[in-house]
Design a protein around this nucleic acid. Sequence first.
DNA 1: CTGATACTTAAGCGGTTACTTGACTGTTGA
DNA 2: TCAACAGTCAAGTAACCGCTTAAGTATCAG
Lengths: 122, 122
Amino acid sequence: MPNYEGSLDAVFQALADPTRRDMVERLIRGPLSVSKLAQPLEMSLPAVMQHLQVLEACGLVRSEKAGRVRTCHIEPAGLRTAEGWIGRQRTEWEHRLDRLGEHLSEERGPSGQGSAEQGSTS
Amino acid sequence: MPNYEGSLDAVFQALADPTRRDMVERLIRGPLSVSKLAQPLEMSLPAVMQHLQVLEACGLVRSEKAGRVRTCHIEPAGLRTAEGWIGRQRTEWEHRLDRLGEHLSEERGPSGQGSAEQGSTS
DNA sequence: CTGATACTTAAGCGGTTACTTGACTGTTGA
DNA sequence: TCAACAGTCAAGTAACCGCTTAAGTATCAG
């Protein structure tokens, strides 16, 4: 059973490898067979297959086999998973800057600027 | 000139861990000391320190020490590194869809839809 | 000075990852 | 039929990851 909770883990983990990012970059320009995918990579075919499995397992890539050729293409929803998380953080960050700006203009002007509260002592 | 390619590896690797994403999410709401950061996490303090080091090494977080307290805050540029790569891929994907649309309307109408060329035979 | 606080360092350990080689299966073209 | 082709499976290995415990080092309060 696929672990959707952990899929953010899996997508980022997949994108952390330069070989896999390269595969994604090339698949985004169009579908490729496994051997075409492997051709510019300096590693054995089984190694490429393993990377491909990682990309498929996290939903970044799909592939299907016709005859003896497996054709791979990206699944844009996978990238959106990762972009979504990052985007939400950026949004939250911007809100925080807004709130901080309000605070500064409401209260006094130049105080210590690194003074975010650290809560009560434990 | 920093190694942007290499830091992509590091940023995605850092974000692949749920503990580290949690730390980022909380730091985005405001700076925290190491022990405050560690408090809700069910692991030892050294483990948290190691996660923190990963986040600092890839430029997602910065921290400085005052007295015996180390205060951590996020570095929004780090997130932009990751978002930038993903965004570029999405852009490329959309361009590809455009080109594909032009092709389909220029040539005949409904053909097989998975028929992207696979380049010349090897 | 003394003890508590807030990290910091070092060593070690089990699990995972990124590869490798070698053997194998199914498909296709001559 | 049969050789080349495209991919797959299995096993092994070296390096890396996330975590632990144990033993430090500064800083601060009294």
